[in-house]
């Protein structure tokens, strides 16, 4: 699945406008682990959001933006159930144009 990033909460890894290739199938063969950048459903309104898995507990995953000052994440909406996590970012196939200029 292809996604384009909107926002700065995952800076410096991913910038606004970056295009990412995200795999849903990878979680059929691999577990969600700390450090994965994931596309997931916001627990509050089911919007698609991009976050990184920071820790794991029995109750769910704690996710946060790499840029904590510009992120709304598990600090606000709590732990995330694995079924809310849609896929993992595999690679960035296009950089935001502003980063190139």
């Amino acid at each position: 699945m292809r996604f384009v990033v909107s926002g700065e909460s995952m800076e410096p890894a991913f910038s606004h406008g970056d295009k990412l290739w995200v795999s849903r199938l990878i979680y059929k063969v691999k577990k969600i682990v700390v450090g994965d950048a994931v596309v997931m459903l916001d627990p509050r309104d089911s919007r698609l959001i991009l976050k990184r898995v920071k820790s794991r507990s029995r109750e769910g995953y704690f996710v946060a933006g790499d840029n904590e000052k510009k992120s709304t994440d598990s600090r606000t909406f709590g732990l995330v159930k694995p079924e809310r996590i849609i896929g993992m970012v595999i690679f960035r196939y296009s950089r935001a144009r502003s980063a190139l200029n």
Partner: peptide
């Protein structure tokens, strides 16, 4: 087709 948008935002600007 264009990719879907995924949000990496803060709810409210700092």
């Amino acid at each position: 087709g264009e990719p879907r948008t995924v949000y990496a935002h803060c709810d409210i600007p700092c």
